[in-house]
Amino acid sequence: MVEMEQLQKEAKEILKQGKVKFVIGYSKGSQNLTATPVFIKKPEHTSRLIWDPTCVQNLVKFIVDDKQKQSREKKPDERPVGIVVKGCDSRAINVLIQEKFIDRDDVYILGLSCEELGVVDEKKIAQKLEGKKIEKIEFAKKNNLIVSTKDGEKKIPVKDVLADRCLECKAHFPVIYDQLFGEETEREVKEPYKSIKKTESQSPKKRWDFWKEQLEKCIRCYACRSICPMCYCDECVADSINMAVTAETTAEEKAQKIKWIERSPALSENIGYHLIRAIHLAGRCIDCGECERACPVDIPLRLLNKKLEKAAHELFDYDVGFDHKKPSLISSFKDEDPEDFIR
């Protein structure tokens, strides 16, 4: 069991000692719903930190933001950032270190083990409530959620509303940390790729129909990209909206900018965008599910990444984010990599 008091105490201690410039963690949701990220700078505020299955966000994105902000500052505070991470989030940190975007010393990691649980899927809760508006969610004893609606309170076991990614999680405890809270409990995952199983078993036509319907919905708001801790490029190759133009950028460079996809949210361009995103996340996505959670039109984006996660595991014995000293999936190979698809 993760003792919340211990987490708060450790956060307080490192802030007091000035070991970190601030601590990024979770606090009670503003509308009494799921937890909300919080930046704590003062030791006395650490009591606001919470940990329960409503802590759905991957806070590593804030590390990326902080790093990018730092690079623009003249005299940045170079002390590490304290960050609360779950198992999946910790792997995001590993990938960032692997890609030399951050140094290990840039972060002080307060790792939380999900133990036998994980985090909830808000959509699954909504389904349980058959459309009734949630007024309040509280995490209660014995791993239950107490959800209040206008019709009163309802007790929902957390297990019934766990996010799919948690049900498929291979390592529900941090793989890199400075302090670990909770146990590294073993948990058998029978079907680590359950969510893509159905799509995989379908005919190409069915698969296409499914993705066509899904990707037609995309409005290209780029929420998936904005929330993704791995999408830290200054300029996305998929579009030139945020092209990094500096004083040195020549007119020729601007003209050379390739429009791999058009900006219009036409199906072909949406597919182009999501294909590029998926392939660029191959061997880098740690399945925190934030892209899917952020998507305003409910595209099951996780599945694309999960498919490549599975390919990496099954074809190349590569699991993302477990070892930052190893070369990346696509910048390495083995002599015995499969080639039965090659003629």
């Binding site: 030399k100 975007f101 300029e235 990094a244 500096t246 990346s328 910048s331």
Partner: peptide, 23 residues
């Protein structure tokens, strides 16, 4: 290398057969 775009991830260094790239 376009330095503006490079994030220094070093993947190009991993794959270069000639060790022609460095950080």
């Amino acid at each position: 290398v376009n330095e503006t775009l490079c994030t220094g991830c070093g993947m190009c260094i991993d794959v270069c057969p000639y060790e022609a790239l460095s950080l």
